[in-house]
């Protein structure tokens, strides 16, 4: 009897030891948006580097940031939007990148690099660019024009949404009025507030997540949302049309950054370099339908993708795009305005 128990214990120990061996592969912890990386590419990276990649997801920059502020550790690679990159960088939460480990950085499209905050890639490398657009159902919205004034259309009342984000919404109103979306001018902001309050009467809701499915299912007819999201649901409902309004819009970068205290910084650099390979970037653009601004990857894209005016907008539209800057203390101005907008009728 005792022998049997001993044998069983020995077996258990052996199994545990084997399991231990398997776990000794380095593990890269990626924290990113959902559906934001191609699983096949992750598998390829795992094979090539004999490691394991664990992908964890967040739904908003703020959620990710709140988690880090609350003391989260163990993540190696994050994909925040530029404004959040700046907030995290200002507080010393991000590592300075070792550019020698990222030779593929030269592939990043210089036209877009100009618009970025961190032009020298000191601590961040662009992953994707997205433009805030209007999405609509072609068969239900009669005589659509690519302008933010569409939000004034009474016939679409209660069937339109705007993003639930103070900077995006007030930013759209500012662009509509011809102002910068980073303005601190009180008069311009007051004008923008009146415009948003007027639009609000026509909105079904302020919505960040469900607007895509809502548009695809015909619940909403016109939505203010991110180009990548909208293109993704276009695959479900080919009635969905997307347009960048002529008044200009907001362009957003999602960057790759390595947080201070990352357990596997070297592997994280390798992952960044791997993603910047033209082949990987092209596959990602096709898969997530956000543009990876990677110049040599463009010619690897399908012709149809290359001709997409949303992924590759005309130069005069690109000229009117603006990046949302973090306003630091002045953010309170926008917060106050947003409170008034939310409470107002």
């Amino acid at each position: 009897m005792t022998k049997k128990i001993l044998a069983a214990l020995a077996l258990a120990a052996a199994v545990a030891a084997l399991a231990g061996c398997a776990e000794q592969k380095p593990v890269l912890h990626v924290y990113t948006w959902s559906d934001y990386i191609k699983p096949e590419l992750v598998a390829q990276f795992e094979r090539e580097n004999n490691c394991k990649v664990v992908v964890d997801t967040y739904a908003s920059n703020e959620e990710m940031y709140a988690k880090f502020k609350a003391g989260a550790t163990g993540y190696d690679l994050l994909f925040p939007s530029s404004y959040m990159v700046k907030i995290m960088h200002d507080q010393g939460m991000l590592q300075k990148l070792n550019l020698d480990l990222i030779p593929n950085r030269r592939n990043v499209d210089p036209d877009y690099m100009k618009l970025a905050f961190d032009v020298d890639m000191d601590h961040s490398v662009p992953y994707t660019v997205t433009i805030t657009c209007l999405g609509y159902l072609g068969s239900k919205v009669s005589d659509f024009k690519p302008t933010w004034a569409m939000l004034d259309r009474e016939d679409l009342k209660d069937r339109m949404t705007m993003l639930n984000d103070h900077r995006e919404v007030i930013g759209v109103a500012l662009k509509y009025l011809g102002y910068s979306l980073n303005t601190l001018d009180d008069r311009e902001l007051a004008e923008a507030k009146d415009v948003v309050l007027r639009w609000k009467k026509n909105l079904a809701k302020f919505e960040n997540e469900q607007y895509k499915n809502g548009l695809a299912s015909g619940e909403f007819l016109l939505v203010h949302g991110y180009s990548g999201d909208l293109m993704l649901v276009q695959a479900e409902n080919d009635d969905i049309q997307i347009a960048v309004p002529e008044e200009g819009s907001q362009i957003n970068f999602d960057d790759m950054v390595i947080p201070v205290g990352a357990p596997q910084p070297e592997l994280a650099h390798k992952m960044i370099n791997f993603i910047l390979e033209p082949q990987s970037a092209a596959e990602l653009t096709e898969f997530i339908y956000f543009l990876c601004p990677n110049l040599p990857s463009y010619e690897l894209l399908a012709e149809e993708t290359r001709a997409d005016p949303i992924l590759f907008p005309p130069a005069d539209v690109v000229a009117k795009l603006e990046t949302l800057a973090d306003l630091g203390e002045n953010n309170a101005k926008y917060t106050k305005l947003w409170d008034e907008i939310k409470a107002g009728d």
């Binding site: 703020e62 709140a66 953010n331």
Partner: peptide, 15 residues
């Protein structure tokens, strides 16, 4: 919008 939504906004959006 209810009070719970405002609390969420203060935490996640307004930080």
């Amino acid at each position: 919008e209810m009070l719970g939504n405002k609390i969420a906004q203060r935490t996640f959006v307004d930080r």
